[in-house]
Simulated assay, not measured.
Amino acid sequence: MADTEQIAIVQLSVEDALAGLALSTEAHWNQNEADWRFFLTRGNVFGVRDKDCHLIASAALLPYSSGNAWISMVLVTTNWRRRGLATKLVDACLAVAAKQGLTAWLDATPAGATVYGPLGFKPTLQLRRLRFENTMPPKAKARPSLLPCGIEKFTERDRLTMGFDRGPLLREISGRSSARLLSNGDAAALVRDGRKARHLGPLFAESPEHALAMVNEVVWCETGPLLIDAVYEQVEFLKGLIGSGWTIERPFQRMRFGPTTAPATELPFAVAGPEYG
């Protein structure tokens, strides 16, 4: 095997979307080609290729507003793991963030958190990914209680929960042909396609009861499996999901590298996903 000290880190382009998708598919992640294309056109995506020019590792830095950025898509193909490639690629992302004066965030698996902590990342909130198989038959139409949500209103709710604006991201995702931006009273949520399951989030509401009601309405009018990345600190909401038949797949730890740029004034019930924050 090649010495990883001699392996070059390269910047990827949109032509690498399918190669990136192959990496996340191997890892059983839910990202699809549209997600990869967004990162490759809007972010800084770094990779490592083997001697045959096959993509064997990746990491992405997606800039947001107000001096913030998200690190994700940290992937290494099976035969090249435990050789320091992920750390080298995250270092490349952090170098860009430092040069641009950005605070970097990420959502880490438990194994990832043990790597990122020594690099200087500090833990913030916790997440739990849950899955609902949703074997109910197709419905003719959505219930009347579910209404379209305007993108400007949704973006403002997201800004309150993140502390910074993610308008370009939310406009792109909600504009995909299969995505739906929904409201139910004071609750609002984004539902979008993934490779393995539809993803529900971000989700905002004034109470756990309203958040659960929104989830139940979405389940009623969707078919096939659903994923949600619930905020662990929303205890009653998480209990309600489990009581409704959702099962926990894995935890995530949100972490920050650098100072807090702007405090969030509202806690979401679910987030956009570990790749987007």
Rank of each mutant, 00 (worst) to 15 (best):
F39L: 13
F39G: 10
F39M: 07
F39P: 08
T41F: 08
T41Y: 03
G43V: 05
G47R: 14
V48N: 07
D52I: 05
C53R: 14
L55F: 09
L55K: 01
A57Y: 07
A57W: 02
A59M: 03
A59F: 04
A60N: 07
A60I: 11
L62E: 07
P63W: 03
Y64E: 09
S65R: 14
S65C: 08
G67C: 01
A69M: 06
W70H: 14
I71N: 11
S72R: 06
M73L: 15
L75C: 06
V76T: 14
T77Y: 02
W80T: 03
R81Q: 12
R81N: 07
R82L: 07
R82Y: 07
R82S: 13
R83W: 00
L85Y: 04
A86N: 03
T87H: 12
K88L: 10
V90C: 03
A92Q: 05
C93R: 04
L94V: 06
L94Q: 15
A95G: 15
V96L: 15
A98D: 11
A98C: 08
K99N: 12
Q100W: 05
Q100E: 13
Q100R: 15
G101Q: 02
T103C: 10
A104E: 09
W105L: 11
W105M: 10
L106S: 04
P110Q: 09
A111F: 13
T114K: 15
V115L: 15
V115F: 06
V115C: 01
G117D: 08
G117Q: 12
L119H: 03
L119F: 02
F121Y: 12
P123I: 00
T124P: 00
L125E: 09
L125C: 08
R128W: 05
R129F: 02
L130V: 14
L130E: 07
E133Y: 12
N134A: 06
M136T: 06
P137Y: 11
P137T: 02
P138W: 04
P138V: 00
K141P: 03
R143W: 03
L146Y: 00
L147H: 12
